[in-house]
Simulated scan of single mutants.
Amino acid sequence: MTTILYARVSTADQTAAHQRTQAEAAGFKIDEVVSDDGVSGVTTRLADRPQGRRLFDMLRRGDVLVVRWVDRLGRDYGDVTETIREMMRRGVIVRTVINGMVFDGATDDPMLQAVRDALIGFMAAMSQAQAEATKEAQKAGIAHAKGRDDAYLGRKPSYDRTQFDAVVAMLNAGETVQAVAKAIGITRQTVYRIRDNRVEAEAALARWAA
């Protein structure tokens, strides 16, 4: 059995190394990392990404695919649900670092299958909704930043884009502020700041070109 971490890196401040560190801190023993750099999960399906195609070729029955969150697989509801189901059809177990979700096609219990499939749909829908909300927040943040004195940047954010996205994802998933802060490695005050004023938090990243 091989455990492969798939890391999609879409912005300059995200790194595959950071995603591996998060996975190992959560208790995963990673055998290999496959990473697509500078690839959008909104516009490019996993099967159409250079390393995504390689991932499908590498994985075998009994292997484990680890991702930080289902948004690394994609941001489109249909794409994410089909990708996870295809992995399960191949006998691959999909696990997430955030929330420790496990998607395993081995069960033949109809009730467990129904719960699993409903959860896949919910998480995929949430991933797409988060992408759309983030896009709107980015627009609002940039507009907000442009409306202020360009010479005034304010204090540099104590979080980067990867951490911001992870905070939003975990809060949307119902995690507590304390759990989010511990999982991501930032202070609770920072999580509160992002939670209570997401537009301003996004604007701070825009001002510092993060």
Rank of each mutant, 00 (worst) to 15 (best):
A131P: 02
E136Q: 14
A129K: 08
R148D: 06
A131V: 06
A131N: 02
Q130E: 13
R161Y: 14
E132F: 10
S158F: 08
A131K: 01
K135P: 02
R148Q: 15
D149Q: 09
R161W: 12
P157Q: 08
K156S: 12
G147T: 00
M126F: 04
S127L: 01
R148I: 04
A151D: 12
Q138K: 08
G154H: 13
D149M: 06
H144K: 14
K139G: 11
K156R: 15
T134R: 04
R155Y: 10
A143H: 10
D150Q: 15
L153F: 11
G147H: 02
G141E: 08
Y152K: 12
A133V: 08
A137V: 06
Q138S: 04
A131Q: 06
A129Y: 12
A131D: 02
G154C: 05
M126L: 14
S158G: 15
E132D: 13
Q128R: 08
Y152N: 12
A133G: 02
A143Q: 15
T134D: 05
H144S: 07
Y159W: 14
Y159F: 15
G147P: 00
K146M: 00
E136G: 10
K139C: 10
D160S: 09
K156E: 11
H144M: 13
Q128C: 11
R148T: 07
A137M: 13
A131C: 07
K146W: 09
M126N: 08
R161V: 14
Q130V: 05
D160F: 05
A133Q: 15
A129N: 13
G147Q: 13
Y159C: 07
R161M: 13
K135V: 02
K135W: 00
